[in-house]
Design a protein around this nucleic acid. Structure first.
Lengths: 366, 366
DNA sequence: CTGAAAGCGCTTACAG
DNA sequence: CTGAAAGCGCTTACAG
């Protein structure tokens, strides 16, 4: 009667049931001893008062929130969506929830009610670990493109096996008879550099095998775009409604990087018969410009992507790609995170396996 | 020294600085009085101990978490992505974070550390309010398609002005000379029924105006698909990797509804010269099947969508659509939510305004 | 300007 | 089987 508009607490229940708060706890949690009839009485009273245990008080007591945060820098990127999807579903099954944070204002981590921090992109994790994360010691799990990346403090990794990814793509293209296999990459950006290097090494080697003389550089298509490593600094307060005409959107969505790369490609005279794109988004941006310019895929040029985004199914042409099974990546990351939190010591390095997905964008030139 | 691996508390700081915990509070919060030198000393000590106020304890004290939850049933739907994007950005600016929950296991709300509950879809909100939400009294904000929907308890709404949306689409098509304007809708589903009714009413009226005799039913294309109102019950534990071949994905993504509708359309002999699709996703699914069957858009049939999804920019053809500015919808919802929480009484009914976006899918038949 | 004390809502040894 | 008490980490009147 007194606290009519406040939610009932364990004390209200205790008074109404004529017992101590300790007994209410035991009854509600089904723990310890409490006489059967008393327990039922307590639960009845609790129900009639609409009693719900206060989750914040529980968290203060248990020192855990069962909540995690996932930092991602771009909500519309299919990779990010799928990563979150996989992670959140595993988390859900294990009793956790995940915040998706697209602002990456890392200082705010200190006020978030979470038990752990996840990243779907290693450069973000690095920025975090080198700033707040250096002293704020929540466990960290990161999906990384670079198994050799050393963070300032030990961090659990889920590793995209890029050597396998890139070679799988090239093997496939070669099996279809391609030899002059180019690569489409953003102008800069460290994580694209990894795939680029792998491609380059392999191409140099193939040049020897086939005793041809390929100019590696001729085979590269670089999108002219600013430093993608540093997207954070530049994405301050983008406009609310996403329009590709907005600089922030245009510059940093991979799709638009692909479009820019295509213009570059059309201006030049690439000797490639097939192009491996840094990811599927870029492949689709690239192909959309080719189409506007009456260049046919795969008749005139074969295209491959990397990632295996779910949007492949939405387009008229399914891009041939190496799937890194992004949902699985997120799922493993969540599993590792929760294992850490629950005291099962997971490995620091967790490798995932890519998988070739055929599509409509590679021509057999054998 | 003692608690070397535990994070420092206000008590550790107090001891190390030789003051009381109350003074530490005052220093850290910059509130109340504390002598300048003492304050500096305290802050120094706090810094050297790596002290961070425990956010859970703060929440227990303040009775707020500054965290919200947004329930959505499908993470890959562009509408949901954009809604979240708008909402989370407003929330961020106002100091809040948002959980994106795609499981909609509403019972779990009781263990979530949140101050309020948001929905981007009214049917979900209704399910919630009729179950846990009936007694668990966190404030609720819902984006609704139906301004007349009455919830079991008062709930704040952000309203999609569907009468305006549908008539704006039809006005546009008529301005391009179309008279036999059909509609593509899922077989069932209450929120598609709203747009369908509005379309029907208008078409009946136009039939009189033009003294023609249109058979309304001939103009409807219905996707044969189960009850989309009840997606929750059926989406138990879908497979991790999204494959359109999976039933769960295939049945409930609007894109696939559009594909099914197209097959229906191709089997029949629709007299329509233009089709208004329930949403853009359906429009794209529809068009993808038309393309496979060599039906040209807009030469053979004009297509319009509703929503204004960001993916319009990714496709070769931009669908002509009525944008409901989904990011804005989310932004308004978050603003209303936070207004409630901060004691500024927002309105219960908040209308948003649609906007026509021209594209490549409507032919001028004048 | 400063500290002791009560309180936020819960849990869990401890004593009975 | 049950209750009084201390504690989780913080805040804020209240008294000095």
């Amino acid at each position: 009667m007194k606290k009519v508009n406040k939610t009932a607490t364990r004390e209200d229940v205790a008074k109404a049931a004529g017992v101590s708060v300790a007994s209410v706890s035991r009854a509600v949690n089904n723990s310890g001893y409490v006489k059967k009839e008393v327990k039922e009485k307590i639960l009845d009273v609790a129900r009639s008062l609409g009693y719900n245990p206060n989750p914040i008080a529980l968290s203060l007591q248990s020192r855990k929130t069962k909540q995690l945060i996932l930092y991602q820098n771009e909500i519309t990127a299919p990779y990010n969506i799928q990563f979150f999807n996989g992670a959140t579903r595993v988390a859900y099954k294990r009793g956790y929830s995940i915040f998706l944070d697209i602002h990456c204002d890392f200082e705010k981590i200190k006020s978030h009610l979470v038990d752990g921090v996840m990243f779907s992109l290693d450069v973000l994790a690095e920025t975090y670990i080198n700033s707040v994360g250096a002293n704020y010691l929540l466990p960290v799990v990161v999906a990384t493109n670079d198994a050799s990346l050393a963070f300032a403090r030990p961090v659990h990794n889920v590793i995209i096996d890029n050597p396998k990814v890139v070679n799988m793509a090239i093997d496939y293209l070669m099996s279809k008879g391609h030899r002059r296999i180019g690569m489409v990459i953003p102008e800069r950006g460290r994580h694209s550099a990894i795939r680029y290097q792998l491609w380059k090494t392999r191409m140099e080697q193939e040049a020897q095998n086939f005793r041809g003389k390929m100019s590696i550089q001729e085979l590269v298509v670089r999108a002219e775009i600013g430093d993608t490593d540093n997207v954070l600094a530049k994405r301050v307060d983008p406009p609310l409604i996403m329009q590709p005409s907005d600089d922030n959107f245009a510059n940093y969505s991979s799709f638009n990087i692909g479009k820019r790369a295509a213009h570059k490609y059309l201006e030049g005279h690439s000797p490639a018969t097939a192009l491996l794109c840094f990811n599927d988004d870029i492949a689709y941006g690239f192909m959309s410009v080719l189409k506007d310019n009456n260049v046919r895929v795969p008749e005139d040029i074969s295209i491959m992507g990397i990632d295996g985004i779910y949007l492949r199914e939405w387009f008229d042409k399914k891009v041939t790609t190496v799937s890194i099974e992004v949902e699985n990546l997120g799922a493993v990351a969540a599993d590792v995170m929760i294992d850490i939190l629950e005291g099962n010591k997971p490995k620091y390095m967790n490798w995932t396996t890519p998988k070739l997905l055929e599509g409509d964008t590679v021509r057999d030139v054998n």
